[in-house]
Nucleic acid binder design. Structure first.
Ligand code: AMP
Length: 308
DNA sequence: GTTCTAGAAC
DNA sequence: GTTCTAGAAC
């Protein structure tokens, strides 16, 4: 388990987390945020903002039987199979969990494979539940960490083309202020207004519409990562990363110091953001300036301890 | 000379 | 994905 960052197997780290049998026992509390029957939420190992979690469907992922039959019906309809086949698969007699009641692990390899899976509704249903929990936990953590008890926008979404194996939902504070944000690809992959970042609700709506793949192709998404360094805050263009990072820090500090609507006031807990309209390079705006462990029976077992 | 980017890693 | 670092850019 030594080659986490570099070397062969670097892209398997999240699969290992997803396979954890007893996360509360075997994962360090500094890593584990929460878990339930279907998902596990961890802290991102290289956070690209002040707060950054990952929600992973667990392996094995147990299917709800009634829903699994619906999945099968849906799949059969799409494939035009006979009702005879449907009766056999849907009417199978079985008692208790069995291997055939689990999502085949390869369906969970990536966002693309989840979308293509007949079980994507169940995966997204579990992700939504855990997303909501994770956002609440992150907000609590923000409040706890600040003397003034403020919190700010939290985004949840996917990278259109992920690098790490196993589908993972990013939950990330919308500041993008982090020492670990080191290159253009990092920034553009989380820029909410570019198109590589896919808000959770957007992908969820694809699932509900029955769309089985993303609207754009791989090459198209990848080309977005090479876009110039445009601030998601005000559309300003930056000629290098250190300059952009200084700008992002000052924007966040500004947001934190401006007058608020009162004690405890914070932005609505929406997880998407509405960015400003991109501004044309060359106009007169600022350009290129140098530089508590839950007990066993709860639905969502919250592991993150919130100190008062 | 220092800062910054971007490609190799067996 | 990360780390390391050569050499481009300033
Ligand atoms: N060993 C690791 N442990 C925890 N998180 C990781 C690890 N390696 C990479 N990550 C994170 O996994 C995420 C993968 O992002 P992506 O595949 O681009 O959606 C990134 O945010 C990384 O910081």
């Amino acid at each position: 388990m030594s080659n986490l960052g570099r070397g062969a197997g670097w892209n398997k780290a999240l699969v290992n987390y997803a396979k954890t049998v007893d996360p509360k026992r075997s994962l360090d509390p500094s890593v584990l945020v929460a878990c339930d029957e279907k998902t596990i939420t961890i802290r991102d190992g290289y956070p690209k903002a002040k707060y950054h979690y990952l929600v992973l469907p667990r392996i094995p992922f147990q299917l709800e039987k009634a829903a699994a039959v619906r999945d099968q019906v849906h799949q059969d309809e799409q494939q035009g199979s006979s009702k005879e086949t449907l009766r056999v698969s849907g009417g199978r007699l079985s008692l208790g969990p069995s291997k055939s009641d689990r999502i085949p692990p390869f369906h969970l390899e990536s966002l693309e494979s989840v979308l293509a899976s007949p079980h994507c509704e169940q995966v997204f249903s579990a992700l939504r539940r855990s997303r909501d929990v994770a956002v609440d936990l992150m907000r609590s953590e923000m409040v706890k960490d600040r003397q003034d008890g403020r919190s700010w926008d939290i985004m949840s979404g996917f990278h259109a083309i992920p690098s790490m194996e196993h589908v993972h939902l990013h939950i990330i504070s919308n500041d993008l202020v982090s020492e670990k944000l080191k290159n253009k690809k990092h920034y553009n992959s989380f820029r909410p207004d570019l198109g590589f970042w896919l808000p959770f609700e957007e992908v969820e709506s694809y699932v509900h519409q029955g769309l089985k793949k993303l609207p754009k192709g791989k090459k198209e998404y990848e080309s977005l990562l090479k876009s110039p360094l445009v601030s998601f805050r005000d559309g300003s263009v930056h000629s290098n990363l250190p300059g952009l990072k200084a700008h992002l820090l000052s924007c966040w500090e500004g947001e934190m110091s401006k007058a608020s609507g009162g004690p405890g006031s914070s932005p609505p807990p929406s997880s998407s953001s509405t960015p400003p309209q991109p501004r044309q390079a060359g106009d007169q705006s600022r350009l290129k300036r140098k530089s508590s462990q839950a007990t066993s029976e709860s639905e969502d077992e919250v592991v993150l301890r919130l100190k008062r």
